[in-house]
């Protein structure tokens, strides 16, 4: 279920100004029955002062649509038309102590009803410039139409750019597949193809608040002799534990990142040998501060062994 604020619930359960105002002189009809919300706002405006004396709503819609309508009528009463027009959809949402992202369009519908009613009063034609698409980014409530318009207007070609221009995808990042699909279509429409690494920009999760990742402290660069000594020292340190199990390890050769060892005694041929090697390798990587591979001497390529 939706996480509605107490104020939303209050305005839904006990809506204010429900029904049409009897002697209204301004009417605004907005919404879309296919989307499931539609609103008729009726106002009684005092002609001399343009003060809104009374407001009423009739709404076909969900809980937040009815609450937004109720809030709107409360907010506009007593204001002049010009003052009322300054109310933004965010103001309506704030009045209700917030709306879930999927429900922000209810506050947009409220603001549009107001514009339509004022236009109706003034004998103007109200042009709706709002088009609603499927919600893509739930973190920032950005829809499909907004993303497409922005891509077209700014010739965007990566998810990162879309995030920078619209915020879509900048939160949890789970809508990136959806954004990539939109980019694929939009780029195809302008004769390009979407490649995740277009224009050399780094794709992937965009972090709004990048956490500083502690880089592993770079091990002081060892010269070849120091490196060999260090490897031997690490292996020596491991031998007592292996010997306790009746085994042993011996350094045979070093070839770049490949360290060849001889497992002797109980370790040799035992099914635990592979695990022992992994443990030895892990220890060496930690101590040397570089990636190395520990390989049984028996698996050494012949030509190298003979070299």
């Amino acid at each position: 279920m939706w996480d509605y604020s107490e104020t939303v619930k209050e305005h839904f359960y006990n809506p204010k100004n429900a029904g049409a105002v009897g002697d209204a002189n301004a009417v605004g009809d907005v919404g879309s029955i296919s989307c499931g919300d539609a609103l008729r706002l009726t106002l009684k405006v005092e002609p001399e002062t343009e003060i809104i004396l009374d407001a009423g709503f009739q709404t076909f819609g969900c809980g937040s649509a009815i609450a937004s309508s109720s809030a709107l009528t409360e907010m506009v009463k007593g204001k002049t038309l010009d003052q009322a027009l300054e109310i933004s959809n965010q103001d309506i949402a704030d009045f209700l102590d917030g709306l879930p992202p999927e429900k922000m369009h209810c506050s947009v519908m409220g603001r549009e009803a107001l514009q339509a009613a004022v236009a109706n009063y003034r004998g103007e034609v109200w042009e709706d410039d709002h088009e609603e698409g499927a919600l893509i980014c739930k973190c920032f409530a950005i829809d499909d139409v907004m993303i497409r318009d922005t891509i077209r207007a700014n010739n965007l070609s990566t998810v990162e750019e879309v995030t920078n221009y619209t915020k879509a995808g900048g939160g949890c990042s789970s809508c990136h597949e959806g954004i990539e699909n939109i980019l694929t279509e939009e780029l195809a429409a302008r004769g390009e193809s979407f490649t995740p690494n277009a224009v050399g920009k780094k794709e992937g999760v965009v972090r709004l608040n990048p956490k500083k990742e502690e880089a592993a402290p770079a091990a002081a660069k060892l010269n070849p002799v120091q490196r060999i000594l260090k490897i031997q020292q690490v292996l020596e340190g491991l031998r007592p534990a292996l010997q306790a199990d009746g085994g042993d390890v011996e350094l045979m050769d070093i070839e770049g990142k490949n360290i060849y060892v001889k497992l002797v005694g109980a370790c040799n041929g035992c099914q635990m040998a592979a695990m022992t090697l992994v443990g030895v390798q892990q220890k060496l990587i930690e101590e040397l501060g570089e990636f190395v591979k520990v390989i049984p001497h028996t698996e050494r390529p012949v030509e190298i062994a003979g070299a």
Binding site: D29, V30, S32, S34, Q58, I66, W126, D128
Partner: peptide, 25 residues
């Protein structure tokens, strides 16, 4: 239904889809 723009006093308004046809579709 009392809140609905498609509903009159005691029933749906006449031709509900025409009586209330909001601006955008």
């Amino acid at each position: 239904r009392k809140l609905s723009p498609y509903w009159g006093e005691n029933g749906p308004v006449e031709n509900p889809e025409e009586a209330f046809a909001p601006v955008y579709a």
